[in-house]
Nucleic acid binder design. Structure first.
Length: 567
RNA sequence: UGGGGUGUAGCCAAGCGGUAAGGCAACGGGUUUUGAUCCCGUGAUACGCAGGUUCGAAUCCUGCCACCCCAGCCA
């Protein structure tokens, strides 16, 4: 059944299928998700996680979580903890396959020496500046370093001295000797090792030289036994270098690098630099602010890991540049929550409504379904009384056509209760409606079946004023106004000023008085809400809106608006 | 004007020489005590463009165009 929607194998899986069939790598499949612990994981990483762990699972293989921790300057344990938490939350398990590039430092060092012995690497004493200028440009070949042809013994000696810490940072580096005239800039004698006299979060002061990405990553794959090294498109022209290392060193395995396009989301920035900027500039409250695209933020927003995995399955895996519409992601979480979230009544922006013909102190507990399409989820009771609260948006004194909510003289059904009629309105001195006076029809109680011919167009949610529970509710909208933000210089100018609306006077049905962080509900007619764990210190529960319900009335309003302004 | 990639509907994406899957969005209709859900229906004479090969091409060949990535002692 689920199978029907399952897309055919993507191009990577197709390659893996062929490899397994051909008995390549002994029929084994091993992948890895290799984050650098220098920031939080965002939803773009989720694609790589799903691909790597997903393919391993599909082929009964294994996937490592390997930290590419080769630059102690920017890395921190705070990030490794956050990354582990997020990968686990997404639903993946690496068992004992947790690794770090730093675990391989000793072997990597041996490989470097081996390259020197073969005359394929040399210690370059040029300055960083000199190395850059001699690299040439995209259209002009580079020039050889004056140190390029020094004897192997000398290189061995200098590299040993580098390792011992006898040179200062920047004094020299170890470079591969490949081809300074290569049209592929990555092959113009890339730096293999640089000196960094800083402690590493795992190896401490053991090393003062650290390997560069290409060298460390390739050989970590090879040592670990990776069969398919899956990465994003920007590493495509690093592949010749990747293969060069494998060709020239006595590696135990020869993994194959395959590149896919990273995923982009409309109205979202994904680069670590820009995300950090949002945090540092105070545009959001932190890396896990629910408006951020980090996994930690999606978690606090109320997204389920299932919905994100579903989403990743739907966007596919190709080499094509892509920018996904927000609608698809929202569809995924709505689909999940529609199925699983229990329904509740909650009034976000309350307006007092008095039922004049309801006895002063009487109350009635009405039965309400927890899920309209899943009776097995049971029912609960909600109290009804003379004074109730309805949504401000559900009343209009002078409504447009097709508004079938409450209006003067109009009738509407109160969800799970009675049909009421608006008899009059009460306004304050400024003319603002502050109370609606209604009458109710006792014959119309929900479920009573009385007078089946009696129908009203609209149904409205409500809460008994006397029984209601106050709550704090956060309404989120997209962080950016610009569909493709980040292209300009001023990120702040592209922000949506209304990305967060905090409501302090939301009123909930009493069954919501006790909730646990992490619980999800649908507030009927409004959206899905998540109980945030940051409510500490506040007696009231705090709800974050995950996503609204689809709203065809809003669409009609928008079209009407467009029709008015657009001649 | 070096090298590496990519171009199928608004957004994704199948297709791999035999006459354009699917999802999301959009639009129309039905059910409905959530204007929700659910259900039904509608979209490319056409696959970046131009030639060519072939009985037959989105799929093969040639040329062109557009877009993305690369010159960190970052990953």
């Amino acid at each position: 059944m689920e199978q029907e929607r399952a897309p055919g194998p993507d191009f990577i899986r197709r390659i893996v299928i062929d490899d397994v069939a051909a008995g390549k790598h002994g029929g084994r499949v091993q992948t890895r998700f290799p984050p650098e612990p220098n920031g939080y994981l965002h939803i773009g990483h989720a694609k790589a996680i799903c691909i790597n762990f997903g393919i391993a699972a599909d082929f009964d293989g294994e996937c490592y979580l390997r930290f590419d921790d080769t630059n102690p300057l920017r890395e921190d344990v705070e990030y490794v903890e956050a990354i582990e938490r997020d990968v686990r939350w997404l639903g993946f398990d690496w068992d004992d396959r947790l690794a770090h590039a730093s675990d391989y430092f000793p072997q990597l060092h041996e490989f470097a020496i081996e390259l020197i012995r073969q005359g394929l690497a040399y210690v370059d004493h040029q300055s960083a500046e000199a190395i850059r200028t001699s690299r040439g440009t995209l259209t002009e070949a580079g020039t050889n370093s004056p140190y390029r042809d020094r004897p192997i013994d000398e290189n061995l000696e200098f590299f040993a001295a580098m390792t011992r810490g006898e040179f200062e940072e920047g004094e020299c580096v170890l470079r591969a000797k490949i081809d300074m005239a290569s049209p592929n800039v990555n092959l113009r004698d890339p730096v293999l090792y640089r000196i960094r006299k800083v402690a590493h979060q795992r190896t401490g002061d053991r090393w003062c030289i650290y390997p560069m990405y290409d060298f460390a990553h390739t050989l970590s794959d090879a040592v670990e036994g990776t069969t398919h090294s899956l990465c994003s498109l920007e590493f495509e022209d690093h592949r010749p270098l990747y293969d060069w290392f494998l060709e020239h060193l006595p590696v135990p395995h020869t993994p194959q690098q395959i590149e896919f396009s990273r995923f982009n989301l409309m109205f979202t920035v994904m680069s670590k630099r820009r995300l950090k900027q949002l945090v540092d500039d105070g545009h959001v409250e932190g890396w896990d602010d629910p408006r951020m695209p980090t996994l930690a933020a999606f978690r606090r927003r109320g997204y389920t890991p299932e919905s994100i995995r579903d989403f990743m399955g739907r966007i596919g895996v190709t080499k094509k540049d892509n920018v996904i519409e927000l609608g698809l992601l929202e569809n995924c979480i709505r689909e999940d929550l529609n199925e699983h979230a229990p329904r509740r009544l909650a009034v976000l922006k309350p307006l007092r409504l008095v039922i004049e013909n309801w006895p002063e102190d009487a109350e009635e507990w009405l039965e309400a379904a927890n899920h309209p399409n899943r009776p097995e989820l049971g029912t609960r009771k909600v109290p009804f009384s003379r004074e109730i609260l309805i949504e401000r948006d559900d009343f209009m004194e002078d409504p447009p056509r097709k508004f079938f909510r409450l209006k003067p003289g109009g009738e509407v059904r109160l969800r799970y209760a009675y049909i009421i009629k608006c008899e009059s309105v009460v306004k304050d001195e400024n003319g603002v409606v502050i109370e609606i006076r209604c009458s109710y029809d006792p014959a119309t109680r929900s479920g009573s079946g009385g007078d089946p011919g009696r129908k009203v167009k609209g149904t409205v949610h409500w809460v008994s004023a006397r029984h209601a529970v106050a709550a704090k509710v956060r309404l989120y909208d997209r962080l950016f106004m610009a569909p493709y933000p980040g292209s300009g210089t001023d990120l702040g100018a592209e922000l949506n000023p209304n990305s967060l609306e905090t409501l302090d006077a939301a009123m909930l049905e009493p069954s919501l008085a006790v909730t646990a962080p992490g619980e999800r509900f649908q507030f009927e007619r409004q959206g899905y809400f998540y109980v945030d764990g940051d409510g500490a210190g506040d007696a009231r529960p705090v709800f974050n809106r995950t996503v609204t319900l689809r709203d065809s009335w809003a669409k009609i309003e928008r079209q009407a608006m467009a029709g008015q302004s657009g001649r």
